[in-house]
Write a protein that binds this DNA or RNA. Structure first.
Lengths: 332, 332
DNA sequence: CCCACTTTTGGAATCGATTTCAGGCAACTA
DNA sequence: TAGTTGCCTGAAATCGATTCCAAAAGTGGG
C-alpha cells in the first residue's frame, strides 16, 4: 500500500498538496494533474484508518436491528444500504437480538470505532441511546420511536395500521376479534394493540382484553399465542396479528386446526415473508420497509453533513389490502 | 473521551506503561493498580482507530454473504457472531447481493478499513479474492469453496447431500425425478446437481438433462423453474430443489396445481425458512448453517492469532430426513 | 511601480494509540 | 565483589492521513 508520502515524492509536491487534491480543491490544475498521475501509478488509496483518526469520524454507518432473521428488518437494511452507498458510505449491520445488553455493546462499538452515524431500531423502551447523544453522534430511530429523546425518527403509523386491519375484519363480518401483539415493552406492539382497540370501538364493539395476547414477535411466539387464543372457553372468530413472523406462526396453528383465513378472520401487520405465501382472505397492512430504510439513511446523511435543524419524525404511510377470497390459495 | 495521556498523567506513569497494562502484562502490580484506578476514574477506553492505525488491523471481522434475505445466510451469520463475539471481535455483515462488483467493493472496504479478517460466501466462481490474499489478510471461504485458491474453507458435502435427497425420492417410488439447481456459475449449484445425477445412476436410472433447471437461488427463480418443469410434454413426477428459497417457490407452484409433496415427490437441499412450514412427505437435507458459521469464525480467529498451518477444508455433515406422510400438514 | 489582497503551497503539528530502544535497578552467579 | 542476567519503565518514534499556519506566488487597483 502506497502512502501519501510516496505519492508526494513521486509527484514532486508536499503531502499536504496530495491530501488537498483528494479532498478540498484549492490546488492548481497543473499540480493536481501530477498528483493524480502519481497516485494512479502507485495505485494509491488513502488509508481510511488514518483518515478516521484525524477526522474523528469514519465513512461507516451502523445499522442496529433487533432481529436479523426477520425479513422486515433485512428489507429495511437494504433500503439503508441503497441510500448510504450512493453517498459513498458503507453500512455495517448489527443484530441486537432484542437484547438491550447486546445492543448497548454495539452502540459502544459504533462510538469507539468513530462511525459516522447510527440508525437504530431499538430493542425495547429501555434501550439507552445516551452514549451516542453525549458524544453527539448523529442518530436516527427507525421503526421504533425515540422514547422521549429529541432525535430524528422514521416510523409508520402503527396505531392507524392496527385500526385499519381490525376494521377490515369487522367489515368482513367478524365480531369477536382477538389480537396478538408484541412484547409489552416494545412501542410498536403497544401502538398496534391500541389500533386494534380503536378499530373495535369505532365499530361499536368493546375490546375484550382477554383476547389480547403479548408474544415475542417471532414465529414461535405467534404459534403459542394463537394456541392460547383458540383454547379459550370462548375463542375469537378472527385475529389481528401485529407482525409478520408471528403471523406465520399463527397461520400454522390455524391450518393445524383445519381452519383458514377464509373462515377464521386473519389480519396481519407487515407483509408475510415470501409474500406469495399470503393466503386468500387474509388482510395485510403493508409496511414500506425498504423506503423506511432509505428515508432514515437520507436523514442521517443530512445530519452527518451538518444539518442542524430541529429533529423531525417522518411517518410513512402503510397500505392495507385483503387478498381476494376466491384466489387460488397458494398455501393450500 | 479520555486519552491514554490523561490516564498516564493521573496515574503518574508514562503512556507506554498505561498501554502495557491493557495489552501485555510486563508491569509491576503496583503501577498496574494505579493505572487501572486512573482509567476507571476517567472512564477510559482505548481509541480503536488509533490502535488500528498502529497495529495495522482492527478487531472487526467482515462477513460477506450473497443474500441477506436468505435465512440460511442469516443463520450462518449468527454462528459467526457467536464465535467472534466470545473472542472479543465484532462482525460486520456485508450483502453482496450475488453481484461480483458489489462484492469486490466490500472486499476493498475490508482491506481499507484494516479489518482483521474476512469470511466470505463467494457470489460466484468469478469472485476475486486476490486483493485480500495479496495483502495477506486471513480469509475463510464458507458454503462456497475457494475455487482453486489455497485457503481455509468450511463446506457441506453438496454432492453427497444431493445424492441422498435424490435417493430418498427413488426409495419413495418416484421414477422421473427433475432437479432445480442454482446458477451455473455457482459451485454449490453444480455439485448439488451432480449429486442428483449420482442418486439417479446409483438406482440404475439415467439422468435426463431436460429435467435439470438452473435458476437464481431465490423464490421467484424456484417458481419459474418449477413452472417450466411442469409444462414439459413429459413432466417429472418428483423434483429435487437445490436450495431453501427456491423450494418455497417450487412448493407454491406445486400447490397451485393442486398437488402436494405427498403425491409429487419433493426433496429440498436446506431447511425451509420457518421450519414448521415443511410439509408432510417432503425430504429435507438439513444444512448446519449456524455450525458452519461458528466453525468458519473459529478458523479465522486462529489465523488472525498467527496460525500458519497449511490451509484446511472442513466439511460438515448434513442430515437427511423425510417428514412423515401422515403428519398433520401445517401448510394445508 | 508599489501596495494590498487572494490563491497556492509546504512545513510541521496533530489525531491517540503501540512499540522499539535504551537506561536503571535488583537479583543471581561465580 | 564484580559481572551477568532479566525485569520495569519512560522517552521518543511510528502508523498515515488532515489541517493550521505562515510563506510564496500571483492579481489587480491606483
Amino acid at each position: 500500500m502506497a502512502t501519501i508520502y510516496e505519492v508526494a515524492k513521486l509527484a514532486g509536491v508536499s503531502p499536504a498538496t496530495v491530501s488537498r487534491v483528494f479532498n478540498s480543491n484549492n490546488v492548481s490544475e497543473e499540480k493536481a494533474g501530477l498528483v493524480r498521475a502519481a497516485a494512479a501509478q502507485l495505485a494509491y488509496t488513502p488509508n481510511r484508518t488514518a483518515r478516521t483518526l484525524r477526522r474523528r469520524h469514519s465513512e461507516i454507518i451502523a445499522l442496529i436491528i433487533p432481529d436479523i432473521e426477520n425479513p422486515f428488518f433485512t428489507s429495511l437494511a437494504r433500503g439503508v444500504e441503497d441510500a448510504a452507498r450512493s453517498a459513498g458510505f458503507s453500512v455495517v449491520l448489527c443484530n441486537s437480538d432484542e437484547d438491550v445488553a447486546k445492543e448497548a455493546q454495539y452502540i459502544d462499538i459504533a462510538v469507539l470505532e468513530n462511525m459516522a452515524g447510527i440508525i437504530i431500531a431499538a430493542a425495547s423502551d429501555a434501550s439507552d441511546l445516551h452514549p451516542l447523544l453525549s458524544r453527539s453522534r448523529p442518530v436516527v430511530a427507525v421503526d421504533r420511536g425515540p422514547h422521549g429523546l429529541d432525535i430524528d425518527a422514521v416510523m409508520v403509523d402503527n396505531r392507524a395500521g392496527g385500526m385499519a386491519a381490525t376494521s377490515a375484519l369487522v367489515t368482513h363480518g367478524f365480531k369477536r376479534i382477538g389480537c396478538i401483539t408484541g412484547p409489552s415493552d416494545v412501542e410498536t406492539a403497544q401502538h398496534r394493540a391500541d389500533g386494534w382497540r380503536d378499530g373495535l370501538r369505532s365499530a361499536g364493539l368493546t375490546p375484550d382484553e382477554a383476547l389480547l395476547e403479548h408474544a415475542n414477535y417471532r414465529v414461535d411466539g405467534g404459534r403459542a399465542a394463537m394456541q392460547r387464543l383458540l383454547a379459550l372457553p370462548e375463542p375469537p372468530d378472527a385475529v389481528f396479528v401485529a407482525n409478520n413472523l408471528m403471523s406465520v406462526g399463527a397461520l400454522q396453528v390455524l391450518y393445524d386446526t383445519g381452519s383458514s383465513p377464509e373462515t377464521f378472520g386473519f389480519a396481519a401487520f407487515g407483509d408475510l415473508p415470501f409474500a406469495a405465501l399470503a393466503p386468500a382472505g387474509m388482510t395485510v397492512v403493508h409496511v414500506p420497509a425498504r423506503a423506511m430504510g432509505r428515508t432514515a439513511a437520507t436523514m442521517l446523511l443530512d445530519r452527518i453533513n451538518g444539518d442542524d435543524r430541529p429533529p423531525r419524525t417522518v411517518v410513512l404511510r402503510n397500505e392495507v389490502s385483503t387478498n381476494p377470497e376466491n384466489a387460488l390459495a397458494h398455501v393450500r
